[in-house]
Design a protein around this nucleic acid. Structure first.
Length: 109
DNA sequence: CCCTGATTCGC
DNA sequence: GCGAATCAGG
């Protein structure tokens, strides 16, 4: 068990999204304890759980390729377009993060 | 009884 | 730092 960047990223995202530790833990594949503990180490502040997400404990290894690709290293399939592709693949804006997050999340069903 | 998060405890 | 066990509340 080692929290990879994507793990923590997804964790944070899901957590910020309003997902409960149990949900996040389930999708991530860890126990809610691990998630809570990890969050604690990360530096989470209590008093935060307005959206009580439905306890749909449907653990599914939703490993979205898009997410993995995004988190990993994107490709540069530039064939005949030497044009300097504006790929500031440095960080993800909230929208981008939320986009892939929502996609991965909703796809869970 | 189920769930929630938070903290403690051993490795 | 990691996770399980445990605690405290709803």
């Amino acid at each position: 068990m080692s929290w990879d960047a994507k793990d923590v990223a997804l964790l944070k995202q899901l957590w910020a999204d309003g997902q409960s530790a149990g949900q996040i833990a389930s999708r991530l594949g860890y126990s809610r304890n691990a998630v809570s503990a990890k969050l604690k180490r990360l530096g989470h502040k209590r008093g935060h759980k307005p959206p009580t997400t439905s306890p749909k404990i449907v653990a599914v290894p939703t490993r979205r390729p898009a997410l993995a690709a995004a988190c990993g290293r994107p490709v540069d399939k530039v064939v005949s377009k030497p044009k300097q592709v504006p790929t500031p693949t440095k960080e993800f804006t909230k929208r981008e993060l939320y986009a892939m997050l929502a996609d991965a999340v909703r796809n869970t069903g």
